[in-house]
Every structure is written in C-alpha cells, then in structure tokens.
Design a binder for these strands. Structure first.
Length: 812
DNA sequence: GCTCTGACTTGCTGCGAAAGCT
DNA sequence: AGCTTTCGCAGCAAGTCAGAGC
C-alpha cells in the first residue's frame, strides 16, 4: 500500500480478525475529548499549539515523500485557518496520527486523498479518476513508485463517490485542469466543441420531472397538524460574492463511465478558450513549476464539460430549477468557460444529452450481474482497506469517512445562498493530518505534493481536516468511526450528563417558572426560552451569517415565527435546522403566553423575539443551574426520558410483535418531539392507493362471505362468484372461520395503512442514533426478552457496544 | 463582553442491498 | 423469479458550544 508507512501497516492488517466486527475496544482511559469535559487538557493543548510555530516548507519532515515535491511555499502563506501549527520541528518522521488524548497515544492512520491536481507532466490520462483511490490513480497515471497495481481500478467506482463510475477514456490533461475533467464523458467533451445542434432550446427546464420538488414542501408541512405549507421567503441575502474564488477549480461529481457519450450542449459551441489563470487552485509552488501553461483548448473544454456534467446529472432534481442554484452554477461555470466563450446564457444550453448519457451509465451499472457487482465491491474494499483503520493507543480503531469529497456542485439545504457553486477538488496540500508524534508520516500519495501540515495534537480526536471549499472558514474533518471507543465514550458521557439533568430538572423548572414574571426582562427571556427548549425540545439557535440558509432555533426566533392564539396557545412556524419546518401549536402556561406577548409588543417582523438573549448567555445561565448543562442536553434528556417512560408504561406481556410495536410507538413519539422529519417517498401515494384497492377487495370478499353465510344458514346454495362461476357449498362454520380470518386481515391492513400514513414524514432513525440512551433499549430488551437485534441494526450495535452490558434494571 | 475559530454532534437524503410479496 | 418496499449506510450539510483573541 503505497500510502502507508511501513511500520504502520503491519499493525493494521496483521491482526485482523476483528477487523470488521463491531469490536469492542475496551480501554480504561477516560479522558474525554471534548473540551468541556476536560477543560484543563484542552487549555493546555491550545496553549501549546499556539506556541508552536507554523511550519514552513522547509520544516517539513523530509520523510514525506517530498522528494518530489516542489516545496511549495505552502500553504502557510495562504490563509490557513488553522490556527495551530505543526509541531514541526520535531518532525522527524513520525507521523502517525495522534489523536488520542493521552500523551502516548499514537494513532497511525492512513489516509487517502484524492486529488490529483497536477498530474505530473505526463499528463495524459486523466481519466476520471475521481473515483479511484488516489494511489490507484497514481499507479495508472504515473510514477508512483510503490503503487498498487495499475489497473486495479478498472471498473471500480470511485472511492470518492460511491455510485459513480468513471470514464476511462483517456484524456490529455494538463495539470491544472485535471480537476475538472475526471469523469466526464469523453464524448461529451467532444461534443462540447462541436456545435451543438439546433437543439431544443432549453429542454432543460421544461422536461424535468422534479421528483424532489416536493421535498421542501413536504418537509415544510407539519406533521403534527397537516397544515398547508406556507411558503417561506427565500433569502437571497447575498449576491454571490466570491464567484471568483470559486471559479477556480474544477469539479465534478458525476462520475460516469465508460461509454463516451456525445453530450452536446445544444445550441452552443463551446470554445476552448485558453485560460491562463485557471490554475487558481493549484498550489502556487506547482504553478511555478509548471513548465508553461499547459492549459490549452482541450483542457479548457474538458473542464467546462465536467462542470456541465455536474449540472446535467442534477437535471431532474429540484435544484436544477432553482434560480439561485442556476445563477451560482452559471457564475462559476462562466469562469471556467472564459469571458469570450460563446456560452452565455443558461437558457440556451441543453444538458439533456449529458443527462441521458449519465442515465445510460447508471443503467449499465445496474445491469451488472450480482457476481460482477460483488467483485467490484471486493476490489474496492481491498483498495480501501488500508485507509480504514487507525491505531489509537495501541488499539486498532475504525476510521469514519476517510475520503475527501469529490468535486461537485454544492447542494445546500433549503434556500442556501451558495447552492450551485462549484466545490473544487481537495488536494494533499489542502490537508492537515494529525498523528502520533512517533508515528511515521503517511506518504503523500501524490508525487510532487505534500500534506499541508502534519500535527501531533493529542488533545483532539480528528485525524485530518481541510477547509471547506465552499466556506473556507469552515473545516471538514476525518474522525474515528462511531463504533470507536473514543466516540463511544463521549456518547456515554453525553447520556450521563442528560441523566444528571434528571436530578436538577425539578429545580430548574421551578426556577424558570418563577422567572416568567421576573421584572428583569433578560431573566424573563431566559426563563421563557428555557421553558421552550425544555417543553418543545427546541434547539439553542445560534446566530447565523447571511451566507447561510435562513433558519432559526430558540434564541433566534423572530417575531413572525410565534403567534399568540388566545387564551394561551402559541403557534410556532419556522424553519429549523436543515430548513425543516417546525409548525406546532401548543398550549402554554399563562405566564409564558403573557411574557411572549410582552416581548412582541411594539415590535415587528424580522426582529428577534428574544432580543436580550443569545446562546452563550443562555448556556452560561444554564451552567449555573447544573454543571455542564447546555441547551442541547434538554433534547437528549427529554428524548430519553420519554422513551424510558413510555416503554415502561406501555409494555405488556404480549408477543414479540406487540412489544416491538410498543417500542416503535415510543420511538415515534420521540421523533415527533424532536421534529425529525423525512420527505415522503415518491411512491407513497401509489403505495397507499394500492393498499386501498386491496382493502376494497378484501371488503368485497367479506361481503360475499357474509351473504353466503346467511344463505347457508337457510340451507340455500351460495350465489355465483364475482367471476360468474358457481361456488361450492360450504358449511356455515367454515364460512364463519373465513369471515373471521378476513376480518383479521382487514384489521391488520388498516393498522398498517394507518402506521404508514402516520410515519410517512417521521424519521425514526435520527433519535435512535443520537438521542435515545441505548442502555434504555438494551435493558428493556433484556427485561422483556426481546433480542436487541430487533431494535438495533448492525451499525447501531457496533456504535453502542458500550451499552450492551447494562443491568436489566437500568432506568434512565 | 463580544466575535471568531475550531472541534465535534446532529440530521437528512440518495443509493444499493436485503427483505418481502406475488 | 421478478418486482416492490424497506433497510442500512455513506455522504455531507448544518447544527452546538467552548475557548481564543481582541
């Protein structure tokens, strides 16, 4: 495995039996990762970090395969958001990641990064590597010395994005452009240049069936009361600012594959325009190195095509019809096309051919035999195995997502101002890795590139991070998997804290009840906000920037989000996290109702309901009431206590199915409290009508049986069946039996239909994963002899290994 | 005391596989 | 066996919240 440090690898693979199991790593260490849990630790670490200096190119450990690298002045120069720095000096070779909090931790980790950025001069082949593991790409493309077998990837889908496959066509690539090109159907590239036919005008907006269209909508609708969705105003608060920044690199997301398809962009001919500066996203050092602008017509075309493909594959989604998405996409695409390109207007582009090509590719993939699929999967797994594990304090732990995100168009949720922008490719030089001090630095898989930085910070849990290309002030991290003991430990701490709230909750409620009428308006607001968070499980509601979707939480509720309904009801209507609508009318205590009335008095829409409050003030106050208490603890507490109480109240001595139904009802209750919604499946209505048809049939059968029964009792023969054929005589007892069976069927079907309808917008999984103390479920299963597998799937079992040995008498 | 940064948790969706149904 | 529905999971967006920095 190319990328891995020799000494690391053995550890990873040799002891492998437990590799895939939900191995339980028992460790005693309890240091917590989170700052809050261990303030001291954190503090010191940060201090330390600050003190350290930023590594400059020269500091980098030679161990990185830098031989080749062009020492780019690295990122240091560029804004690295990272405040810290590397412990460079000591850099000696060690890099393994450290994540553990313990001093001696050493995590070895292997990481793969995908970028290719500069395919070294050989430049050719840049076939859609997006989906290949980096190393594989290298192998194929170039010089990677120890790389794995060259064509391993054939036919594989990209590690980056699972569903797509890449085009293996060869393309001449020049360095900086590569990014965009991977995966674009070659032919489409060609097409680009040719002038597209007369094409229909914008088939684009016309023909789509927008399956997604309804999502927002439905999300919006409240499941609690089926109220029609109101429309929310979009936010366009911000004019696509940095188009320039983004424009730079390329991207692509779809990955398709083999067959080149002539995708044409309708009436437009794409001109290959030479864009000299299109290597914006190329590390400076590399650019310098670049012999000359290799960018030429063809690369530019490829790039453009890639970007077009990214859009084309989204043609049948809701995004493709959103003006903001289109505008952002066009702005970024234009940057790639260049100023003088003939493509100017979105409306004149026909993305259909690319879209259709993509559909064909998907279909092809679907048609593969089971064996072929299996083989591909195994192959992929083999290639990725080395990136899947880290050694933390000597224990092999599973790594969470070890892939960087492939280039693509940003799909924000709700009315996100940046939707449609190009998400550029992430390169090694974007990535900071964190490994044990003594661990060997994982080899940078791309010749000529190097990691942005190698750190040895054992006070944090991340293994690697890079800046989010859409919002460079933010980061994307690689963490250990949910099943790791590190995560399990913090999960457990989370639930322990929520349990602690049980001991304080009465006092807290008494306090806020008293403060509903406090003279101090801040106090009153804190009291009311806490009440809402407690009673309605609202989120805290941090402030948001204008370049994010316009959503709110408790502290950021606006005047118009809460309506007073006399005598003492409040109607909430707002978009919360992920732009999911929260619509709920609740009866509240009169003092709360009055207080809200006061807060609203004399103020208008757009203003904050809690103008004296923000999340830090609120949390600071909560902390005075209970150590470590913050707003989100209430959600965990209320979810878990609800499950615990419902399970214990409702479980009867029934059969297994009944017990599980009890669990599901409780789970549903929690999901509703937390407002966990899902979009209605596209086929929901079809499925429902199918069920009702069946129901009608059953009822008809029932009627017929009843008639027959009546006649049989009178000694008459049954009437002819619906098909006109005569039926056999049946004894009344037999008919009665059939009737009761049919009734049972009808009842069951009615139940199923109700449940289906009921749950069509309710997502049960989120609460199970994040809010329900697994010990409640495990203990309940033990008490009622329900196999835990009926409640938790494989990954939840792995995630909750820490909870499995709980005592059956455990109560939250 | 406020803003910004950084780290980590929470959340929904889409896709492919498994399970269920006819 | 073939089709439909559900399940499981990866992907990645979007929250929360602590602490640094000004």
């Amino acid at each position: 495995m190319a990328a891995v440090d020799a000494c690391i690898k053995p550890n990873f693979f040799d002891d492998g039996e437990d590799d895939d199991g939900p191995a339980v790593f028992k460790r005693n260490k309890t240091v917590s990762t989170r700052t809050q849990l261990n303030p001291e630790l954190k503090k010191s670490s940060s201090q330390r970090n600050d003190g350290s200096s930023v590594r400059s190119a020269s500091d980098t450990p030679k161990s990185q395969n830098s031989g080749l690298q062009k020492g780019k002045a690295v990122s240091s120069a560029k804004v690295s958001p990272v405040k810290s720095n590397v412990a460079s000096s000591n850099a000696s070779t060690s890099i393994s990641k450290s994540s553990s909090l313990q001093p001696k931790t050493e995590i070895n980790e292997e990481k793969k990064l995908l970028n290719k950025h500069q395919s070294q001069s050989n430049g050719d082949t840049d076939d859609s590597d997006d989906d290949k593991p980096l190393s594989a790409r290298l192998a194929t493309t170039a010089t990677l010395p120890k790389s794995q077998s060259p064509n391993v990837l054939k036919g594989l889908s990209s590690p980056v994005s699972r569903s797509s496959q890449s085009v293996r066509t060869k393309v001449v690539v020049k360095k900086s452009d590569e990014d965009l090109e991977d995966d674009i159907p070659l032919s489409s590239k060609f097409q680009f240049k040719q002038s597209g036919g007369p094409s229909s005008k914008n088939s684009y907006d016309s023909d789509e069936d927008k399956p997604l269209a309804s999502k927002l909508q439905k999300n919006g609708s409240s499941k609690r009361d089926n109220e029609p969705l109101k429309s929310f105003k979009g936010l366009n608060k911000r004019p696509l600012s940095e188009a320039s920044t983004s424009g730079q690199s390329s991207i692509k997301r779809p990955k398709p594959s083999s067959t080149p398809v002539p995708a044409k962009i309708a009436q437009v001919t794409v001109k290959a325009e030479v864009k000299t500066d299109d290597d914006d996203n190329v590390p400076i050092a590399q650019r310098m190195k670049k012999p000359a602008p290799l960018v030429n017509k063809s690369t530019s075309i490829k790039k453009s095509t890639k970007v077009a493909t990214m859009f084309a594959v989204m043609k049948d989604t809701d995004y493709a019809t959103k003006p903001r998405f289109i505008e952002n996409f066009m702005n970024d695409w234009r940057q790639i096309l260049g100023k003088n390109h003939i493509i100017k207007k979105f409306e004149l582009c026909d993305f259909t051919p690319i879209y259709e090509w993509h559909q064909r590719e998907k279909e092809k993939k679907k048609q593969m035999s089971t064996e072929e699929k299996k083989a591909v999967k195994e192959e992929k797994l083999k290639l990725e195995e080395k990136y899947m594990w880290a050694i933390v304090d000597g224990v092999k732990e599973k790594v969470g997502n070890f892939r960087v995100e492939p280039p693509g168009l940003f799909r924000g949720r709700g009315e996100h101002p940046k939707m449609g922008k190009l998400k550029r490719r992430i390169c090694p030089s974007d990535i900071t890795i964190n490994i044990g001090k003594d661990a060997a630095v994982p080899e940078c898989p791309i010749p000529g590139e190097r990691w942005k930085e190698v750190k040895h910070d054992n006070t944090v849990t991340w293994l690697a991070f890079w800046n989010d290309p859409i919002n460079p002030r933010e980061f994307k991290y690689v963490f250990l998997a949910a099943s790791s003991s590190l995560k399990g430990q913090s999960d457990k701490e989370k639930y322990e804290k929520a349990r602690l709230l049980k001991d304080y909750i009465h006092g807290i409620r008494a306090t806020y009840t008293k403060d509903f009428v406090s003279k101090d308006i801040t106090k009153r607001q804190i009291a009311v906000a806490t009440y809402l968070i407690d009673k309605l499980a609202l989120r805290a509601g941090n402030e948001k920037d204008d370049d994010e979707a316009d959503t709110v939480g408790c502290c950021t509720l606006k005047m118009e989000n809460v309506t007073l309904i006399p005598p003492n009801k409040l109607q909430f209507d707002f978009l919360g996290k992920d732009s999911i609508r929260y619509f709920n009318t609740v009866e509240v205590e009169l003092p709360v109702y009055k207080a809200i009335g006061q807060f609203k008095a004399g103020r208008g829409d757009g203003e904050d309901l809690f103008d004296k409050l923000d999340t830090s003030k609120l949390n600071a106050h909560l902390k005075e009431l209970m150590p470590g208490l913050t707003a989100k603890v209430f959600r965990t507490y209320n979810a878990s206590i609800t499950l615990d109480e419902m399970l214990n109240r409702e479980t009867k001595d029934g059969d297994m199915a009944e017990k599980i139904a009890v669990y599901q009802i409780a789970n549903k209750e929690v999901a509703i409290i937390c407002n966990h919604q899902r979009s209605v499946s596209k086929s929901h209505s079809v499925q429902m009508s199918r069920l009702s048809e069946k129901m009608d049939e059953l009822k008809a059968v029932l009627d017929e049986l009843q008639t027959d029964l009546m006649r049989a009792k009178k000694g008459k023969p049954p009437l002819k069946g619906a098909d006109g054929k005569p039926k056999r005589n049946s004894a009344p007892e037999a008919l009665e039996r059939k009737i009761s069976q049919t009734n049972a069927k009808i009842e069951k079907m009615e139940r199923d239909m109700r449940t289906k309808e009921d749950l069509k917008t309710v997502a049960l999984g989120t609460s199970k994963i994040n809010y329900l103390d697994p010990r409640i479920s495990v203990a309940w299963c033990k008490r009622h002899e329900v196999p835990i597998e009926k409640i938790f799937n494989k990954s939840l079992l792995a995630k909750f290994t820490w909870a499995m040995d709980v005592d059956p008498s455990f109560r939250f």
